[in-house]
Design a protein around this nucleic acid. Sequence first.
DNA 1: AGAATTTTCCAAAACGTTTTGGGAGTCAAG
DNA 2: CTTGACTCCCAAAACGTTTTGGAAAATTCT
Lengths: 336, 336
Amino acid sequence: MANLKQLAHSLGLSITTVSRALDGYADVSAATRERVCEAAEKVGYRPNASARRLRRQRAELVAVTLPSDPGHIGPPHFLDMLSGCAEHLAAAGLNLVIAPVPRGESELDICRRFVDGRRVDAMLLVRTKRRDERVEFLQSRGIPFVTNGRTESLLPHPYVDGDGFAGFRAATLRFHAAGHRRIGHIAGPQEYYFAHDRCRGWRTAMEECGLATDLCAEGAPLEQGGYLAALDLLRQPSRPTALVCATDEMAIGALRALREAGGDNQISIVGHDDLPMGAFTSPPLSTMRMTGENLGASFASLLLRAIAGEPATELQELHPIEFVDRDSHRRPAQAA
Amino acid sequence: MANLKQLAHSLGLSITTVSRALDGYADVSAATRERVCEAAEKVGYRPNASARRLRRQRAELVAVTLPSDPGHIGPPHFLDMLSGCAEHLAAAGLNLVIAPVPRGESELDICRRFVDGRRVDAMLLVRTKRRDERVEFLQSRGIPFVTNGRTESLLPHPYVDGDGFAGFRAATLRFHAAGHRRIGHIAGPQEYYFAHDRCRGWRTAMEECGLATDLCAEGAPLEQGGYLAALDLLRQPSRPTALVCATDEMAIGALRALREAGGDNQISIVGHDDLPMGAFTSPPLSTMRMTGENLGASFASLLLRAIAGEPATELQELHPIEFVDRDSHRRPAQAA
DNA sequence: AGAATTTTCCAAAACGTTTTGGGAGTCAAG
DNA sequence: CTTGACTCCCAAAACGTTTTGGAAAATTCT
């Protein structure tokens, strides 16, 4: 309702003094400060955000781009993550704006608009590609940002990611230890870092075990993609006895393919993401997920530290993957 | 990079002219406009958002409060909805900020901060209560807002809602037509409008059929709440043969209760929300959902029209509920 | 040619803060 | 009494736009 000028006038003080009193500077007497704060409280004074932002040259905003294309947006708890992130940012006076990508525009366009219009102090990127033009752009502009997922960018940048390589390697080795020899991989689009990373984990494990790496099929990171990829593998002369899937959605599609192709319930399967619906599939889907609670807080903290100027190499979090054992990974090795 | 002053200087024009040229005013010659736009394009000029906001007295922002308490945030496609809304708002130059409620603060506090700090041009509220203090506050401040869900506020306000009353009444009548006579209701907390509305639908149908309305149990709008409420109803001397549940989450909890209480698969059940995981439960969960595609666009449009000053009564959307028939509602009426 | 009108431009005033660079007083030390 | 240090305050200059209210120049009309 009121602005600084009116408040100052009503107190018989200058704008400067009122402003500084409210900000708790030492060069205003305790008595005045008291009086000012009291009056401000009474009229419910809140500084005008736009004015402050202009003067301070800060947008007090962080944007996260929401990819619209293929597949829904990331992991199941994505909104929870955003919510947690926003909450922690808010504690530092920053708000989180969500920036979906309209059809006909690229994520890069969005970044450009936000950055060049000085609408944000930092950006949060999800679903990184191995070579990610958004990352390159933001690096060239020198604006702070954090990604959910690594990239192959030459310059280091802040990120939070799960160690998909280790997770998928471990999952594959587990199958090997259980006696499986024909272990297939249903891969996501290799341009995405996470998909490539997970694929590498599987391939490395296979090579370590001296097994062939031809049982690999790539598809869109969706139910349908997993379904088609699984059909592909089931057509091979020697069928896999176990399937490591890049995502739960794909794993659920693979489950459907298995059901249709007969030999139902004979092939072990494991996914990644811990989608809630995995608990209800038949068989219940064994899966993996990134450890670490309150990922939102991680993102927020990294963003704030990036804004504060900490070097990127200090702002990289690689979380281990943990197994969520349900039932789908327990099929015997020789059955298929 | 560049601001208006520099751009104007480099062109030998005044700030005014450059500004007006870029905004396409008629009082700048076509030639100059051309020249200005070209130069602006070349240096990648984008007006500073904070400055424009200050001058225009608009925040160019809309905030949506994300409730943290009980249960996750609303319907399954909530993020999709937000994303769609943000996309349409962006087309009008508005960005959507998400405002979760930190522990220790109320949603009202959040509204106050955003409104009194002039941080937003409008607000989007979800999960309305029958008597909603946020609504009352925003009405008193006269700031535009739209709710997801109705309230019992005396003054009309813009909303988008599903006709839960009609939906639950119809669902109940369907059970009645299938021969059911002991039809129970698992209700959500009655302070929420949607929960009360759905409960009323069930009760009205029961009364229309001349049936008793005592088979009603209330619980938290969560799996556990549905589970406990269902146990409650199963303890009744004459068990229900069908269950109408306020939400899918509760219905899934009820399914668990049914499984544990024996008499498995004997009781018909229907939920609401069309959670994806409902397709995977056993039996697959029959459910309901609000019709209308691209709800996000509805919200965005209502918000924009509210900002433009259209009266609230023109900005109310009540969507019919449609059934999603899977399997859980097909149990015979006499079985239980 | 002079008057009226239209076209094209611009200086200056906002918008509401924060911050800079002092300026009065007061007090203690020299 | 002067000097210096301190305390408390403030005027004015930003921040980068948009908008107001003309003014000069060009054009059209008498």
